[in-house]
Design a protein around this nucleic acid. Sequence first.
RNA 1: GGACGGCUAGCUCAGUUGGUUAGAGCAACUGGUUUACACCCAGUAGGUCACAGGUUCGAGUCCUGUGUCGUCCA
Length: 907
Amino acid sequence: MEKAYVPQEVEDRLYQKWLNNQCFSGKIDPSKPSYSIVIPPPNVTGVLTMGHVLNTTIQDILARRSRQEGKSVLWLPGTDHAGIATQTKVEQSLAKSGKSRQELGRGNFLEHAAAWRDKHGGIILKQLQKLGCSCDWERNVHTLDEDYSKAVVDAFVKLYNRGYVYRGQRMVNWCPASLTALSDEEVIMKPQKGFLYKIRYNILETPGAYVEVSTTRPETIVGDVALAIHPEDPRWVTLKGKHVLRPINPKAIPIVADEAVQRDFGTGVLKITPAHDKLDFEIAKRHDLPILEILNPDGTLNKQAGPNYEGMERFAARKIIAKNLDDEGMLIESEPYENKVGFSERADVPIEPRLSEQWFLQYPRVEEAKKAVKDGHIRFFPKRWEKTYLHWLDNIQDWCISRQLWWGHRIPVWYRKGSIRSDSKNWHISTTPPKDIHNWEQDEDVLDTWASSWLWPLATLGWPDEDAMEKKGLDYFYPTSALVTGPDIIFFWVARMIMAGLEFRGMEKRKDMSLSESDIAKRIPFNDVYFTGIIRDADGRKMSKSLGNSPDPLELIAKYGADGLRHGIMSIAPKGQDIRFSEERIEQGRNFCNKLWNVCRFRQMSGGPKDNSIIDLILLRVQGDQITKDDQAILLRLAETLDEVERLYEAYEFNSVLHTIYHFFWTDFCDWYIEISKPRMNDSQAKETCLAVQDLCIRQILLLLHPYTPFITEELWATLGYSNGKSIQGVSPGKGDAFIKSLSNLGLNLDSNTLGNVSRIRELITHLRALKAERHLSNNKKVEFLFIGNESDEKMVQENESSILAMVGGAALKKTDTAPSGLPASITPLGTFFLDLSSGVDLESERKRLTKDAKSLEGIIRGIETKLSNPSFVDKAPEQVVAGAKKQLADNQAKLKETKEALQALQ
RNA sequence: GGACGGCUAGCUCAGUUGGUUAGAGCAACUGGUUUACACCCAGUAGGUCACAGGUUCGAGUCCUGUGUCGUCCA
């Protein structure tokens, strides 16, 4: 074996082997329980980020752990076509060569975009393989695949036929950069600094009188059709029914009273621009006001804004109109003001509320979606996200699902040529085009990307095609076992998948009929949802390309190995908490792998490879009379670790799982067991048993670690003779009691008392080491100790003398009856020990140290005494707590007595 | 404005249903070429658990309020 672990020599070779042996293929096997995960599909042209590393490592851990447990596992990978994002990128690349998509035309553009996708796409999948992800690559799905596209179209038609889809002229979020409508979820509210303008509107019926109106958007004045006041606002009672003159493009407009007006904003008088504000639109509808559209789709002012402003960009117009108002004395004041403005998620420009005809979806199964989570059919980890989810569903609005884009699933609606599109009589809505196609034209728009990805758990498993569903195992793998994703897409994706599952899985259920409890249980797309945290940089900032603070995972893999990266990221990812990235942790991950490698290397150096392929073969090498306390203790600790890990997995506490394994491996096994067993290597009888115990421990450690660090564990599994040609992947670490039982079946019964005894010896060793280290004596300098202790302590010390001396670097442990004078002392669980120094004891500093100890002990004792003398504590506290306190008092008093005696000896 | 989360050692975080002297890793400091590992070993030091009240025999843990940072929703 190499002196250090070299991941590069192992990773690609093993991954290829796994692929060749089809280790990751999700087989439909009714003899086994199934376990399934669908990957949150990354953008097809995306590259791996640290977020993906965290997210997919967790999924891989779940998949690999489940494979070990003997389940038939499917981890289904794929990519998303990412409508706006991809189209924008393609358009940008076209723009470089001076072309626009309009010039190319729809067909050519789509060909171009598909070629672009094929060239840049799929990189991320290769990167996931580098990370070791055990996806079933044969099943890779892309949302624009033919079958998947059929599912998307089919779902739309079903929803239309079931009465959930409608077309309507509505106020939508319009992106002036991408020239498309967006859903509410794609709008991000951001605080913006601007001005609040106070503008004068003259009252026509009362010459000389005017009202003040506050607005942040003076450019919309040209679209004003009225002013509005609250009907119960005493300040404005007299205004009802009067008119004002619009200060730009002058025109008489009425004053209306409406309860939606916010009285405490500005002066309490609102200008009404129905075409460019949602609230204004509603007020206008209630009062029969005209709708005056003044903006072009790209955000410039149109003809209706008047000749002075036509063609002007919206923010330029704002400045000019404000200035013109000021020049005419109509601007009373303007003050700096911060308000929240909606921005387009993708294009990052302010959106415009705009009246437009679009396709809308009334969400299906909203109530059942709430119930599914409330009643625990779907469990959220951490649970607190349930509240966010339910709150969104409580306030849900219809979903605008049409996008004025080309890259995506074209809406399966045809309109009779030359007819009015808003009339449903002229529609053909079907998965197949009309027969007399020449009389029809298809809707130009595509569907929102999320209106395809919300079908992900269904459509990747063959839905809605019966044959495909059977072949891909929908009945076997659905509902999927767990979903691992970030909380940022809880509305975009998680909630919608739940609704889609409830609506589409199983027989059609009429809109007005709700689903039964058992229907819900069968239809949900997943049982558990694990929300990861967001990875931040060391300063707590979100990782982003523009900040350049996102490390390249592939570089990290090259530097530290895939296992190192996985180990590092998992060690810092607490459940649902944001994560601060630091490369040091990845370095620790690599160091961990190296430690593992080396302890195995050490094992190899102690004796040639054995056939370890069956656990019983290892156990047969254990000789009953050679079993030591240390053997028993490490095996007991191992059993505890197995149980603890099991419990933590159930709670999705991934970083605690790792910490538990880490502690057992590094501290219990390497630092104590291996060290204490070194002297036993000199005795051939003892050696055989000791190595067998080592082999047992290493076996379990490799199994426990395999989900986290798959490569190195697979490699070592083979190197140390556990594999017999088979992969580690199918072997389960098992539960603690089963482990103990399998030992017991072969005659190895563990005594749980050894744990306490061994830990006292460990503590003693630590004390003795400290006595030396504080005096700068090197580890290997052999020194003698004197000690005072009772009979049982003495027995324990003598029984373990050789290993204590070996661990401490001691020459002898000598029993004495009286405290030797002038020597440094330490109070241990096995008596008072003195370091036998020939010369050079600094009495003063020794006295100081022991005095400090005595003082702290006195403080503790006082505290316990106070507690015990409090009658209400003795009365009310549980018996065992009182008994515990009494024991504690006695222990500390004994320790204090010993400390004082040692102090006395220094006088 | 509402909801949720964080505030514990210099840093990053553990801390189960309230019950010994609040833990770990990293960093720091001291020492070390031990039968694997310096990507290592041994040891030392470092904390009024954000603040203020309350409940309790007992609070880092439960309750109320405040501050502060962050996220989401309006």
